[in-house]
């Protein structure tokens, strides 16, 4: 039973990751592989603040968002100088730089060993002790993100970013400041990832750089490629599918190290298969 609650918590953390990535990649058309880095910024900020400085959980989330907003804003400005394919390459680089920071700023981030004994969350004075209680918190987060996504995608903003994806020049000619919209989409997407990261670090109470590698970003991309671009349903489906898959592998009983790589290999194979057969994904509204 605890196991099921654990899976549900992970799902409710990753659905917002998928939704926010879809906002950027599926709807705005920006193929950015930095999501794990943004996720990491939130995770590390919360870990450092709550453990070393005794800051409350919610405050640490707020600071995490602030840090991520600044980082993503700067990143977006820099990467926007790169055209087409080189943007994606640059985003790889950004993720690698962030990973290097997590890995090497040992006094702050604990280096390769990471940060452990992250204190449990205390939300509005109530300590979140049981996993069931945490599930409640993460579900609330997931629902809030879903509602937010619903609002943003049906608003004019949601329309404009899709127009930017479909034909940037036309959107520019019709008077829209494309650069601003792209930056805002990037920042919003990163901020949601940051909150998810904060939740993750509080839940697992231990983080290390391995959760925020380039491979993890690719894994997040797989979620929305399977689910389909520009689809909220797709993002949710993709997240659930991709979380449940390795759990199925676990039942097959392979040694952990092999299982971990097998999971990655399967994701790679799925990507190749999907691009060949159905680039739109299961629920996608847009073919890349």
């Amino acid at each position: 039973m605890d196991y099921i609650i654990h899976i549900l918590i992970i799902i409710s953390i990753f659905v917002p990751l998928a939704l926010s990535l879809d906002l950027l990649v599926g709807r705005t058309g920006i193929l950015s592989i930095t999501h794990a880095g943004m996720y990491g910024l939130g995770a590390y900020t919360t870990a450092i603040l709550t453990k070393t400085y005794g800051v409350s959980f919610l405050t640490s989330v707020a600071v995490g968002i602030l840090v991520t907003v600044c980082a993503s804003y700067m990143l977006s400005k820099v990467l926007s100088r790169l055209k087409g394919d080189y943007y994606t390459l640059g985003s790889f680089g950004a993720n690698i730089i962030l990973f290097s920071l997590f890995m090497n700023l040992t006094p702050l981030t604990g280096g390769p060993m990471g940060i452990f004994n992250i204190p449990q969350a205390v939300i509005f004075g109530i300590p979140v002790t049981s996993t069931l209680a945490f599930l409640l918190v993460s579900l609330v987060f997931m629902c809030l993100v879903i509602i937010f996504m619903q609002m943003i995608t049906t608003s004019r903003f949601g329309l404009i970013i899709q127009a930017i994806r479909d034909d940037t020049l036309a959107t520019e000619v019709f008077g829209y400041n494309v650069k601003d919209f792209k930056t805002v989409a990037f920042v919003i997407s990163a901020s949601i990832a940051s909150i998810a990261g904060s939740l993750y670090s509080t839940y697992i109470s231990f983080i290390d750089p391995s959760s925020f590698t380039l491979n993890e970003s690719i894994f997040m991309l797989t979620m929305i490629i399977i689910g389909g671009f520009a689809s909220k349903r797709g993002a949710i489906f993709g997240a659930v599918f991709v979380i449940l898959l390795p759990e199925l592998l676990r039942f097959v009983g392979l040694p952990d190290s092999i299982a971990a790589q097998l999971r990655v290999a399967i994701y790679g194979a799925i990507l190749m298969y999907l691009m060949y057969k159905k680039p739109t994904g299961v629920f996608g509204n847009y073919t890349p």
């Binding site: 394919d85 290999a265 890349p288």
Partner: peptide, 23 residues
Amino acid sequence: SSSMIMMIASLGFMTLVQAVIAM
């Protein structure tokens, strides 16, 4: 196929081979 599809396909290829080698 768009270059995004090609890039993602090559990304999948790299991920796959990398993982197999690691295994």
